[in-house]
Computed example of a mutant assay.
Amino acid sequence: MSIVTVTAFRYKPLARFRAFANMGRVLMQPIREEGLRFSKLMGSGINFGLVPDLSTYVFLGVWETDAAANAFIHTSTYQQLSQGTYQTGTLHLEPQRAHGLWDGRNPFDDSWDRVDRPAPKMSENSPVAVLTRATIRTQALPDFWRHVPQARQRLTDHADDLLFGIGVGEVPVVQQCTISVWRSPAAVDRYAYRQSGHKEVVRLTRERKWYSEELFARFSVLRAEGLLFAPVQALISSI
């Protein structure tokens, strides 16, 4: 089973141009580290919206082993990405299930879909991370973004269950990704299937064909590092 890391970098004002330039460098020369199977460096939007947050970027890595994931912080790549930051934090995740594609592939270990290997079980009190990612069809962009404030309000309505949430993406406007951490599997279900009206949004994506490519993944949270993810680690420590 692969290990997935989500590292958030928050930059001081004078370092934000360098951080933005990192996006271009990585697009031209993708990050290569031992044990790294898939990676993305993504910019963020303020409050999940269209306005860019130039202070915050996220690196997502899919690693062959926990040792490879842990070693990343000691690499020159990490040192370059973290230069000029005032806050960093990393989530270490284990994939539970995933469906869909990202750049034409499922980057997460899909072995749980095999009959001979059941999906890992999550404790009913353990935090859960959810990732959604999509490429939006050009003709669907106005309709999609018109519904974003409504979806954002639904997240706000579940603030007690939401430990962390951010909207990021590789390409502004067109490619979008959300990463969220919830108190428990039940909290995710309440948001996705019950009070929030999330099912209505899912219905619209199908009916109006917003996406040319999409992926959904759910993870157990193994541990969290850094003040940014302190609420997540506090919950894990209390279990």
Rank of each mutant, 00 (worst) to 15 (best):
110 D>Q: 13
111 S>W: 05
111 S>Y: 02
111 S>M: 13
112 W>P: 06
116 D>E: 11
118 P>W: 05
119 A>S: 09
120 P>V: 12
120 P>M: 14
122 M>I: 05
122 M>D: 00
124 E>A: 10
126 S>A: 13
127 P>D: 07
129 A>G: 09
129 A>E: 08
131 L>F: 05
132 T>S: 11
133 R>H: 12
134 A>V: 11
135 T>Y: 07
135 T>I: 15
136 I>M: 12
137 R>A: 12
138 T>E: 11
138 T>I: 14
141 L>D: 00
141 L>Q: 04
141 L>S: 00
141 L>C: 03
142 P>I: 12
144 F>T: 02
144 F>N: 03
145 W>S: 02
146 R>K: 14
148 V>C: 08
148 V>E: 03
149 P>A: 07
150 Q>Y: 02
151 A>S: 04
152 R>N: 01
152 R>H: 01
152 R>Q: 02
153 Q>C: 04
153 Q>N: 05
156 T>A: 07
158 H>F: 09
158 H>G: 08
158 H>R: 10
159 A>E: 10
160 D>N: 12
162 L>H: 00
162 L>W: 00
163 L>T: 01
165 G>I: 08
168 V>F: 10
169 G>P: 15
170 E>F: 12
170 E>A: 15
170 E>S: 15
172 P>L: 15
172 P>Q: 13
172 P>M: 15
173 V>W: 04
174 V>F: 04
176 Q>W: 06
178 T>R: 14
178 T>I: 15
178 T>S: 14
179 I>C: 09
181 V>A: 04
181 V>D: 03
181 V>W: 03
182 W>K: 06
184 S>A: 11
186 A>G: 04
186 A>L: 13
187 A>F: 00
189 D>C: 03
189 D>P: 01
189 D>V: 01
194 R>N: 08
196 S>I: 03
198 H>C: 04
198 H>N: 04
199 K>I: 14
202 V>H: 02
203 R>E: 08
205 T>I: 15
207 E>I: 13
207 E>G: 01
208 R>W: 06
209 K>G: 06
209 K>M: 13
210 W>T: 00
211 Y>H: 05
211 Y>C: 11
212 S>Y: 03
213 E>D: 09
215 L>K: 01
215 L>R: 02
217 A>E: 04
219 F>T: 00
219 F>G: 00
219 F>M: 02
220 S>T: 10
220 S>K: 13
220 S>Y: 01
222 L>R: 13
222 L>K: 13
224 A>Y: 00
224 A>I: 01
225 E>I: 15
226 G>S: 14
227 L>G: 04
227 L>K: 09
229 F>T: 02
230 A>D: 09
230 A>H: 06
231 P>Y: 07
231 P>Q: 10
233 Q>F: 12
234 A>S: 12
234 A>D: 11
235 L>P: 00
236 I>F: 03
236 I>P: 04
237 S>F: 05
238 S>T: 07
238 S>D: 08
239 I>L: 14
